[in-house]
Design a protein around this nucleic acid. Sequence first.
DNA 1: TGGTTGTTTAACCAGTGGGTTGAATTTACC
DNA 2: GGTAAATTCAACCCACTGGTTAAACAACCA
Lengths: 112, 112
Amino acid sequence: MAVDQLSNTFAALADPTRRAILARLAHGEATVGELAAPFSMSVQAVSKHLKVLERAGLITRGRAAQQRPARLRGRPLEDAANWLERYRQFWEGSFDRLSDHLREIQKDNAHD
Amino acid sequence: MAVDQLSNTFAALADPTRRAILARLAHGEATVGELAAPFSMSVQAVSKHLKVLERAGLITRGRAAQQRPARLRGRPLEDAANWLERYRQFWEGSFDRLSDHLREIQKDNAHD
DNA sequence: TGGTTGTTTAACCAGTGGGTTGAATTTACC
DNA sequence: GGTAAATTCAACCCACTGGTTAAACAACCA
């Protein structure tokens, strides 16, 4: 997988199970077991999903006895939203100044 | 890969080459050759990236003589942005009503 | 008709993703 | 110390990604 943070974030979001996990975590932290319960999949598989989310910075893990509760981190979501926001004028249908706008915000901002 | 549209969109965005292609297309439609030029990669590889973007609905292809110019479609970007928008209150740090909010918008909205 | 340009298809390769099962690890409880 | 619970690690499977090169296809030009 690509190494840049934004790519990791989008890749992490590109799976319905992981998006459901994030939705669950928005209500508060949860253990692996709790997160796995709604899915017809092994707890090990969920543990792998959590590792993907952790690598993307979308969650942090704590420790409480044997459990390692996961907690949502919003920052990468914000970064992803900001990236998409650049295109808002585009999907809203007014392309007039978008070209200039993009040229400007990408000046010191490589390909992404 | 997951079959749902949102997963396809996020997966398509999870690659810096493809994001750069979208940025280029925001300035106007472009042919495969034009899109490939800035990259140190074969034109065939770019053609594959375009197929991924097309599958995600992020571009449409036209036809003009031998060329098949690509054009950006904003709709899936909007859908992705809307998905992220649910978490805005979260990354802005006010979690107060988020739980209720999520519960509400997800009532008729399966896991995603 | 044949050649050139633009693009896609096919076959291949190494790496990764998402899942499985089974074993190991960590921590609490008695 | 022994056992049970929560989690991770390891090995494996199969499908897909992102790239390559070589060949095929499509459309224009002379």
